[in-house]
Design a binder for these strands. Sequence first.
DNA 1: ACACATTGCGCAATAG
DNA 2: TCTATTGCGCAATGTG
Lengths: 89, 89
Amino acid sequence: MDRGSEEYRLRRERNNMAVKKSRLKSKQKAQDTLQRVNQLKEENERLEAKIKLLTKELSVLKDLFLEHAHNLAESVPQETSAAGQEKST
Amino acid sequence: MDRGSEEYRLRRERNNMAVKKSRLKSKQKAQDTLQRVNQLKEENERLEAKIKLLTKELSVLKDLFLEHAHNLAESVPQETSAAGQEKST
DNA sequence: ACACATTGCGCAATAG
DNA sequence: TCTATTGCGCAATGTG
């Protein structure tokens, strides 16, 4: 190839542009990937928090059930009387 | 700089090695980031599934509570009964 | 054969 | 002074 030809220089020039463009695109994509990681991390934290909350709610309800069952088995001669009244400790 | 000197060639050689090494490292890091994205996506899905499960459990328990309360209101016209008994619809 | 896109590679500048 | 990192251009190769 003739490095002095007009044609050659033109090709080189255009390729150099293409290279720059391509590499910019590549870097952009890498940046996007990093941002994606951060987004996902944040979402993850939100989900973990939600799970924690739901778990706690569930735990409370289950305890209520247990207590109720306990009351039924232990005393409850009638209706709903024993709402935790005889607690000592 | 003398492009023919032993020193020059040696420097170039070493720098070329360093460049290769650095670029490999860079690519490796990019790969790791992509994997990280996939890991996070998977974890996200697990968390979403767990939330779905917990939500369902919670819903079931709440329904049981409501049913229970309903039963009390229906058949136990004693002290605690005054919790909105006059409602027709 | 043509045009742009992508990639490996080396050079040089410069950061550390 | 040495390696590490980065922008850049060249050439080969990929893609359409």
